[in-house]
Design a protein around this nucleic acid. Structure first.
Lengths: 213, 213
DNA sequence: TCTGTACGCTTACGGTGTAAGTGCAACGGT
DNA sequence: ACCGTTGCACTTACACCGTAAGCGTACAGA
């Protein structure tokens, strides 16, 4: 007689996990809490996912799906620029994702597709295999490194001035003149680091290498 | 009558924590295990450190001490190159460190010194405050991003071929031609990504920006 | 000699992921 | 119409985590 509820499935578990992690942080993503979120006891989740690592792998791969890599035929530089900016947006929208991608081993379907498209645009653009590897790796280093710094470092991002105010009093200007100078500047200007600065620097460098030497 | 042992102190606790994390990974660094390592019960550690976070902050800051940033008077480009390579070596020697730096909030004495020296060489080299911020941030994005990829991504580093062999069978060459191509190349050539490729690309770009526009 | 403090110890609590076992409801084959 | 299988939920229990709280003892300074 009771209303038969829609049965759970892997997809719904992963979606709920993403929502929960986005809203309350990755620490809040526990099996019991996630179960509660989808209206089920913790252990019931194991009917749909292998274990917690499977969930983490799953949500990372699902999120990668959102990254936009332009299709074959797009100019490589334009494609890489678009891809990097899109990836950066996605990683900022899911602040737990960058760290998970870097700290875990798996390559799922989403990751493979994303990678294949990336390498494809580079190869079509005239890069050798080695060149494409270097380009990909350099672009991604900047992507992940920048995003992680942006999300975690005290004096980056919006809260810069708030945190800086906390930190400044403890810093002697004689001992650390340059740190004090920079923090002062950040506080006054409200400046936020610019992802595209490093991105364009790298893209131009890659282009020069491709045409030159 | 029993031999009076050297009393523990914060320094020895942190050193032991670093050794343990280096040898068995950060997961093995639990309070009980660390206590065991220094010959003491877990709770006794709390006489020397505030809590586990204090330990993590402490070992990160201690490790940063090992990074070599050339003194004032050194050419900025040479100094940044040296600093980046040194930092990369240190982060590879302590594979848990990069992730911890990126995922935690504190800036201790070691971090501040390291940062001040970095900004100092850039400012002395002619960078504006904003320019120095951009340069620092871009160099560090590459440093951390590259290192994390190197330490964690399946097809990077030495184990590339081993892991690739595991992964390849599941990849259809029609669906993911470029991934298959690249993995094949990595397996044949045993190629390992090169930190200095991206580093020099960035340094040259920074130099061009400094002299040009 | 007395006493305060530093530093070790033990016990206990609430949290984690998950192994193992139970029970119910729907479905397919006879 | 029955009945075995299967899918999916539930409950219980375990080992391990960080750490709060409290106890005991040995040394240093008065």
């Amino acid at each position: 007689m009771a209303v038969r509820r829609e049965p759970l499935n892997r997809e719904r578990v992963l979606r709920a996990a993403i929502t929960l992690a986005d809203k309350e942080g990755l620490d809040a993503l526990t099996m019991r809490r996630l179960g509660q979120e989808v209206g089920v006891e913790a252990m019931s989740l194991y009917n749909h996912v292998k274990n917690k690592d499977d969930i983490l792998d799953g949500i990372v791969d699902l999120v990668l799906t959102d990254i936009d890599v332009p299709p074959a035929g797009t100019d490589w530089k334009k494609a890489m620029r678009r891809r990097s900016i899109s990836a950066h947006e996605v990683l900022v929208a899911h602040p737990w994702a960058a760290m998970q991608i870097m700290s875990r081993y798996s390559i799922g379907l989403g990751m493979t597709r994303y990678l294949d498209a990336t390498l494809g645009r580079l190869r079509e653009g005239g890069f050798t295999i080695e060149g494409a590897l270097d380009a990909w790796h350099t672009l991604d280093s900047h992507l992940y490194g920048f995003t992680l710094q942006q999300l975690n470092l005290p004096f980056a991002a919006d809260e810069a001035s708030r945190v800086s105010a906390d930190v400044l009093p403890g810093l002697s200007a004689e001992e650390f003149p340059h740190v004090v100078e920079v923090i002062g500047h950040v506080m006054r200007s409200g400046r936020v680091e610019d992802f595209e600065y490093g991105l364009d620097l790298i893209l131009d460098g890659l282009e020069a290498g491709l045409n030159g030497s």
